Amino acid sequence: MGSQFDYTQIRNSQDEQTMATLLSQCFGGTSELAQSYLNRLGKDNFRLLCQGEEIFGSLGIYQMGQWYGGRRVPMAGISAVGIAPEHRGKGVADQLMRQVILELHQLKVPISTLYPATQVLYRKVGYEQAGSYCHWELPLAGLKLPGGDLPIHSVTPNNDEAFQDIYTRKAQANNGNLDRHPALWEQIINPVEKQTIYAYLIGEKTQPEGYVIFTQNQDSGKFVLALRDWVVLTERATQRFWSFIAAHRSQITHVRWRGGLLEPSLLLLPEQTAKIIDLEYWMIRIIDVPKALSMRGYPPTLNAQLHLEVTDDLLQTNNGKFCLTISQGEAEVTPGGKGNFQIDIRGLNALYSGFLTAHQLELTGQLNATPESLATATMIFSGSNPWMSDFF
């Protein structure tokens, strides 16, 4: 089937116009919004599946990073996978995804991440669930909290440099958090929609301990404070953040934000009133097994060895036995070994991110291992539950 199509970048202005139309049809919105999206991500970061001048489908690639075990792993985020309606059901999306995976493998990208509209398609090419993306909502009625003496300062929202260092310090401590692509920062601080964005630094101006960026919107009878991004690095910043949010309660009825299944800062609130109103799982695919395993972080005091035997139906170089040796948190991957931890690529994805433990994966039939290697894998891939607050 691959010989029927050309896999290529945007070739000319006609391709660009056709893509903008396709994106607006597949994902809603106007052609102008689609064109803005093309410009933000960069036209070189889109791929097409074509026959001559006819475009069958397209996708975008965010070249960025993702944090695992305190280490940044280079990652390709796949977005906006769209197939022309008249060509759906013919295997076009499958072929498009196979081609981009092969390209990423040639580029030696360790991992790829995406948000699935349908899991069936992406599981066929080796992706698996790997982390959470939740929408939280908290009613503000009656919420009153002491704020302490930490100052909070209004700042101009359209300069992400003020927030990047604070964000990175938080992100590297949380599995799955992104080293954001510039387009994602632009989306936070300068959205396409005509909204007023408010931004505040928490703490001293010269040494802030957090920040919050938000809008205020009417939604279905609720007056909502919508957090576009927020970070707190200390206990007192967390306390000040929630007291600042609570101070809006005379007009704002609810606050909403995006995050993981667990939100530790909610322990400071007097009651369990915050609720998850929507939940999605994102997916990951290991593109290069040795590189992905060696670049990830591990518990710093751990010394262990895991003898993997990996099965990957698409990328043959991922097949075979690998010995993962951890010494004081540093990883080395060598070919060979005993192969007493047998796992397919999808199972390895979920284990790698920390989404599921080896014992949990054994119940799904995606691995076969000795009791000793199961226990070892559980220690090696321990850490915080993976999540993202960014959608792409």
Rank of each mutant, 00 (worst) to 15 (best):
N217C: 02
F223Y: 15
F223N: 15
F223H: 14
L225C: 03
L227T: 09
L227P: 00
R228M: 02
D229E: 14
D229A: 07
D229L: 01
D229N: 05
W230D: 01
V231Q: 15
V231W: 08
V232R: 10
V232T: 15
V232F: 02
L233G: 08
T234C: 03
T234V: 01
E235Y: 02
E235H: 10
E235T: 01
R236Y: 13
R236E: 15
F241G: 04
W242C: 03
I245C: 07
A246T: 12
A247I: 01
A247M: 01
H248M: 04
R249S: 15
R249A: 13
R249E: 12
S250M: 03
S250H: 05
S250W: 04
I252F: 05
T253L: 12
V255G: 02
V255A: 14
R256F: 00
R256S: 03
W257R: 02
W257S: 06
W257I: 04
G260Y: 05
G260S: 09
L261D: 14
L261V: 01
L262A: 09
E263H: 10
S265V: 12
L266D: 00
L266T: 11
L266K: 00
L267S: 13
L267M: 04
L267N: 09
L268P: 01
L268S: 14
L269P: 02
L269C: 12
T273K: 15
A274E: 05
A274V: 02
K275Q: 13
K275M: 06
K275G: 00
D278V: 00
E280L: 11
Y281A: 01
W282L: 06
M283F: 11
R285H: 11
I286M: 02
I287P: 04
D288K: 10
V289P: 07
P290E: 15
K291D: 14
K291A: 12
L293S: 13
S294M: 08
M295F: 13
R296P: 06
G297A: 08
Y298N: 09
P299L: 10
P299F: 07
P299R: 13
P299M: 11
P300L: 03
N303A: 13
A304K: 07
L306C: 02
L306S: 05
H307V: 05
L308T: 04
D313G: 06
D313I: 13
L314D: 07
T317G: 03
N319E: 06
N319D: 03
N319P: 03
G320I: 14
K321F: 04
S327N: 13
G329R: 07
G329S: 09
G329E: 11
G329N: 07
E330R: 11
E330I: 08
A331P: 09
E332V: 07
G337A: 12
N340Y: 06
F341A: 13
I343A: 12
I345N: 05
R346Q: 12
L348E: 13
A350C: 08
A350N: 09
L351D: 12
